[in-house]
Amino acid sequence: MRAVVYTEYGDPDVLGVGEVEEPHAGRGQVRVAVRAASVNPIDWKVVSGAMSGGGRPDGPTVPGSDAAGVVDEVGEGVTGVQVGDPVFGLGSGTAAERAVLRAWAPKPPDVSFETAAGLGVAGETAVRVLDLLGLAEGRTVVVDGASGGVGIATVQVAVSRGLQVIGTSSSANADFVRSLGALHTPYGEGLADRVHEIAPDGVDGAVDTAGRGSVRDLVALTGDPGRVVTIADFGAAELGVQVTSGGGGGAARLAEVGALVVQGRLQMPVEAVYPLEQVAEAYRRSREGHVRGKLVLSV
């Protein structure tokens, strides 16, 4: 099958399109004929070698963490889905004509495969971080990085749960963040003071989606490092902050995301769609930051 591949770590230029052996669904998995796969920060971090511990790729490797497509193979022990069903979900090596998913949910019928491809990592992460905070309805949460894929999903899931949301972004994205249902403030230096002006009684929880040094401000705002969750600042664990990078329970979280999309309570904008052959450009664009929503590869 055709797939994006790399044989060494480095900048996006190490990525190309080649032929590799197609994968097959194992127990508890499904395989999909991929229609679209999104580009996530974790993908280019892996390709860069930042997650390798100094090793080298074990042969030609296909990147990608989520996708949307049509089920064409169902693994042993899987129920509730059959060949021909359109789904979106989480896997590895998803930037390819076929990919195996470890967690999935039905594709909402009124969204494109390109949009659905952007729901996997962003949506599952949003539900996971808010579950970790466990805030009751009416509480206030800060989402730092509210205009990126995970931030957009987190704001909307939080609003659906009856939380008051303060979202940070660049000033250029202020109106967009407000359109998601959040109060807006710029990110960066002085964040704690700006949020305190909006919420003088403090906030009940905070989510760092960007890993750009906001964690100490977020701890100051909540008064408790245990009420701060980050997905990008792995050193924050030393402060007592909750650091999360995935785990079990993905299918249930994806089902919640899909239901919110069907209800019209969650939307995921796609900033740009690239063919597989332009994967390096898509990764470069993602690394630059300031993407509003998702970048997607069309397969």
Rank of each mutant, 00 (worst) to 15 (best):
V261Y: 08
L133S: 02
Q263L: 14
V70D: 09
V17E: 04
A116F: 08
G93H: 07
L135P: 09
Q82N: 04
V228P: 12
L221Y: 02
T244R: 01
A153Q: 07
A255P: 10
G10Y: 05
R139Y: 11
G77T: 06
L135T: 03
A103Q: 12
D144W: 07
V279S: 11
R265K: 13
R216P: 02
L297Y: 01
G28F: 00
G75E: 07
E271W: 09
T94N: 11
G151Y: 03
A122G: 07
Y283I: 00
A68V: 05
A210H: 13
W104G: 12
A50P: 10
A67V: 12
V20N: 01
T230K: 09
R98E: 15
H196E: 12
A67L: 10
A25E: 01
S170W: 03
M1T: 14
V127Y: 01
V270A: 06
R265S: 01
V243A: 07
G18S: 15
L191R: 04
H290M: 05
A172V: 14
G28R: 01
D175W: 05
G89H: 01
V87N: 06
G84W: 06
R194T: 04
Y187T: 10
R292V: 13
D85S: 00
A33Q: 15
A95N: 15
L260P: 09
P275Y: 07
P41L: 05
R35T: 07
S65Q: 12
L101A: 06
D110Q: 14
A153S: 13
V62H: 11
D11I: 00
L218M: 00
S179Y: 05
E271V: 05
G211F: 06
Y187P: 05
I152T: 15
A117V: 06
G80H: 10
S179T: 08
V299F: 15
G69L: 08
Y9W: 11
P269M: 13
L15H: 00
R2I: 12
V39W: 10
R35A: 15
V142H: 06
Q242G: 02
T115V: 15
V127C: 11
V47E: 13
R139P: 02
V195P: 02
D11W: 04
V261M: 05
L183Y: 15
E271K: 08
L297K: 02
S179H: 06
G293E: 02
Q164A: 14
S298M: 09
A210M: 15
E238L: 14
P60Q: 11
A172F: 00
I231V: 15
V81K: 11
P109T: 14
F176Y: 14
R139C: 05
G145K: 14
R253P: 00
P86T: 08
A105F: 09
R31Y: 06
T115E: 14
R31Q: 11
A237N: 08
S286I: 01
V279A: 06
G145L: 12
L133E: 00
D66E: 15
Q267P: 00
S179D: 13
L276A: 15
P186L: 07
G293W: 06
L266I: 03
P200T: 07
P63Y: 13
L15T: 02
E281Q: 12
E124M: 12
D11V: 11
